[in-house]
Amino acid sequence: MPTAADSAPHLPAGNNGDREPVFHVRRLERIYGEGTAAVTALAGVDFDLFHSELIVLLGASGSGKSTLLNQLGGLDSPTHGTLRYRGWNLAAADEPGLTQFRRDAVGFVFQAYNLIPSLTARENVALITEICRDPMAPEEALQLVGLSERMDHFPAQLSGGEQQRVAIARAIAKRPAVLLCDEPTGALDVHTGITVLEAIERINRDLGTLAVIITHNAILADMADRVFTLSDGRIVNRRTNTRRGSVRDLAW
């Protein structure tokens, strides 16, 4: 359990050891609207997420998994509860603080890739590495996702799987502490989806980045260290895989 960093005013930079949680979440609630119109999207979530873990958050549409990802990614703030990133109080952060957090600590992978159409693969990655403290070279990031050959192509010239791998390269080039993937294979066929998941797995394994994948596809659960299933804003099931399955063996 964290103690020392509770009052840390600055965004923690380094990795302080394997057993300090990257995220510390307790009784986390997110309620939209007020009074009778209030909608509870998260109704008290507890967990700790650690360095180099691969987490899968499962849930149907409306289960609250996207809301939870928004909280972890610094896109939204909780209504109640504790949300700490390496001991830093993420729940109380203001807008510039959240922007800084996203910039330094989080790599996002979107369901629709969200590449900038006017920039090539290499430039899409470089756009982000330019604003980071200690990025890897765009070429290195693209090599990690197996796209060395197609670095100078524009998004419109790449397949869906290739675009998603560019997005992953963009997300990891900043050496983030956490990689948040929102339905990363949602728009892809099985084969392409597997190459994308392999890329995420390799990053998680080689760089030790905490990877959180949210999906409604239960098959992905096998590749995770731990699996949380959400329903109605609560974690209704927790499962720990003693041995992670290979992405190759996944089938849907």
């Binding site: 990614g73 896109l75 510039p96 922007t99 800084q100 996203r102 910039r103 330094d104 989080v106 996002f108 979107f110 969200n114 900038i116 159409p117 756009l127 982000i128 604003i131 980071c132 963009r170 900043k174």
Partner: peptide, 16 residues
């Protein structure tokens, strides 16, 4: 809008 929102999510400040 989508492109700009993406940049914000990726850590660009409002000014950037």
């Amino acid at each position: 809008a989508r492109e700009l929102a993406t940049l914000r999510v990726l850590g660009f400040t409002r000014g950037e």
